[in-house]
Nucleic acid binder design. Structure first.
Lengths: 200, 200
DNA sequence: AAAAGATTTAATCATTTGATTAAAAACAAA
DNA sequence: TTTGTTTTTAATCAAATGATTAAATCTTTT
């Protein structure tokens, strides 16, 4: 019997094109023909390899959700690092990752908005925000303030510049290189700011 | 000659429905039939009053951009308020406004991402972030740190919870009421945090 | 009331779009 | 080479969708 020997290169070309186009334009604005063109393949091949636009999207989306939330999972659950160390690691991990993939947060957030039912409890991020060891450390340090406030502060200050990238560029505030410089600076600043906030 | 006497009520019903549907699903995922149904009108009326889906969208979008950026314009340009006062006003204005319109930022940001060319320099927000009196006050206070860092901090901490609302709800971290409570708390906290950050 | 104009409706168009099909081409096994 | 299998292509389909049209209804003016 002959093994399935799909040309992995073609399949991967389609998936890569799908990543690009879906992330750039979102599910609804993406035409399967856009993906085919981006991949340099015949339209029918998309269905041959992935059955449907939706199936292909789910594949890409699952990847992107992992990328976005996977960053912090190992950090916030560690029992070996201090509070301050965790903040340093989180900020650094997010800014480094998003510099390579700036469209990621806006993509994931807007697709979840468009179809909240579809994601249901598939997102385990909830537990990271409410049950991780990081949360315990925050409560220990500041029992008077809900830990989510600090988590939102750290994430927002790290991620927000990337979410607003399209506006910053359209409005001529920054170009792509300047944004990277700016967020690189923030790696150190945010940690410093966190330290004074947690004591304030 | 008889004046054009369009039934303003119908026109407004369509515009209102368009606001709802466009904001919820974005331009591409919105069908003109969705808007017609939401407005309770015949599909053809949409074109009768607004020519095309795109024209209607531009109308709504212009409104939404104003809502989103109009909030801060009068505050940051005032010469009568102190730095701290401005921060208090900005945070309060945004959180109050977004509590009534939580989907606004994600909508505007993702539409600009989908079609950056289209917005070009139509967004005057750039000047608010680079040339306002608020910026001068920030530089005066902390000439060593780019003022945009502080502006991003204030805006991100205020707006980010609303951007992530769909995730927070899907993941079961918070429901809508809890989010309002949470952001209401932040009105005071963010100002406090800003004060220690600007001194740090 | 009659005429003129504005608004609304049902039906229909043309295009786009996701998907399928049948045949061709490429490849592997014998 | 021959045979069978996988991959690719061009052509086509059916449904969805933005838009238009022509007729019907309602409103205003005279």
């Amino acid at each position: 019997m002959v093994l399935k020997n799909k040309d992995a290169s073609t399949e991967e070309k389609i998936k890569e094109a799908a990543r690009t186009v879906f992330t750039q334009k979102g599910y609804s604005a993406t035409r399967t023909r856009d993906i085919a063109e981006e991949a340099g393949i015949n339209l029918a091949l998309l269905n041959y390899y992935f059955r449907s636009k939706e199936k292909l999207f789910e594949l890409v989306m699952a990847e992107k959700v992992s990328e976005l939330f996977g960053v912090i999972a190992p950090i916030v659950n560690s029992k070996k690092t201090s509070l301050d160390e965790k903040v340093t690691l989180i900020v650094d991990a997010y800014i480094t990752m998003l510099s390579q993939n700036p469209g990621l947060p806006l993509f994931v957030l807007s697709e979840i908005r468009n179809n909240p039912e579809h994601f249901g409890n598939r997102i385990q991020a909830g537990k990271l925000l409410t049950e991780s060891f990081f949360v315990k450390q925050l409560i220990e340090k500041r029992p008077d303030i809900h830990p989510l406030h600090f988590i939102v502060n750290i994430l927002s200050m790290s991620i927000f510049p990337f979410i607003t990238k399209p506006v910053l560029e359209s409005a001529g505030v920054m170009n792509s290189d300047q944004l990277n410089e700016f967020t690189e600076e923030r790696k150190i600043l945010i940690v410093k700011w966190f330290k004074v906030m947690i004591e304030a």
